[in-house]
Design a protein around this nucleic acid. Structure first.
Lengths: 153, 153
DNA sequence: TCATTAGTTCATAATTTACAGAACTAAAAT
DNA sequence: ATTTTAGTTCTGTAAATTATGAACTAATGA
């Protein structure tokens, strides 16, 4: 498994991006490798050796990614190794997660308006405005996706 | 400064949400307090005492939030204290950040397609699809915001 | 002039996290 | 039967993060 300079630095950049999304460094690098490698499917040892991470870290990372549905694996007859790859369905899920996150935030903000008693309604109005904006975006999302599906053809 | 049970637990929940967005625990709690407290503006000591965090942690948190533009303060004549509050303009910025983040991701994914040489074009096609979806959402966002502004009146 | 207020800065302590290395297991191969 | 393969699990620990308390500063007040 030999990678170009560009591939190596892209793994790091994507890794940092995913660290900021709450993944452990090693886990984020494994995702990066599976994303940028020339072969879509890699074995345990290839991942461990290419990224220079221990077997335990590799095992931990792969199981974490399997459990969270970010990767999957295939096997081949007469070959005991598993071949790991990124779940391609996961791209849309990833976007869905961002939307869910905004939904979660919006739920919290709605509760904020319920529990606090502000003398000055200006602050409440601004917050209400933002809440309704998030609701609006959420509601329009399905039709937006629809619109995109049609534009593809 | 006395807070209801609901306010206290909402501070923690919002705090955890913001920890996941990369804020330090104490910083996230300060944001939560300023968000849910009945008074919009609180002093250094009120924040420190209500959250039970040391003066140094409070100082650090407030300066961090000031520097990142999340809070601001006012003062009153003959009163040396500063009164801190959440910047309300910040709500829209927060949404903007999420969109920028998706843009960043999309930039990385475009580079992925450039650097990897996949024998099987199926994976490339799926990724390309997602990239074009993110571009589509980004392009439609201004008109979506426009639509919302109009629907408000 | 001395005390108080409203913070800031620094050294350090307490957690937390992230990983390595070694020992282990279960199945397959020789 | 024992060796190899393909991992897993279990400590230990280095490093990073986060917060504390004490000492400090600069301005105001008595």
């Amino acid at each position: 498994m030999t990678l170009s300079e560009q591939q190596l630095s892209l793994i790091e950049e994507f890794g940092i991006y995913q660290e900021n999304n709450g993944f452990q460094p090693a886990v984020a690098r494994v995702m990066g490798l599976l994303l940028v490698s020339d072969r879509a499917e890699l074995t345990f040892d290839e991942i461990s050796e290419t990224l220079n991470i221990s077997k335990s870290a590799t095992s931990n990372a792969l199981n974490m990614l399997l459990n969270t549905g970010h990767i999957e694996y295939t096997t081949f007859p007469g070959d005991r190794k598993r071949y790991f790859r990124i779940k391609s369905s996961n791209w849309r899920d990833l976007f869905g997660k961002k939307m869910e996150d905004l939904s979660h935030l919006n739920g919290l903000l709605k509760r904020v308006l319920e529990v606090r008693k502000r003398e000055n309604p200006v602050y409440d109005a601004k917050l209400n405005d933002f809440i309704s904006f998030l609701d609006f975006v959420k509601n329009r999302m399905p039709s937006l996706i629809d619109e995109w599906e049609k534009s593809k053809t």
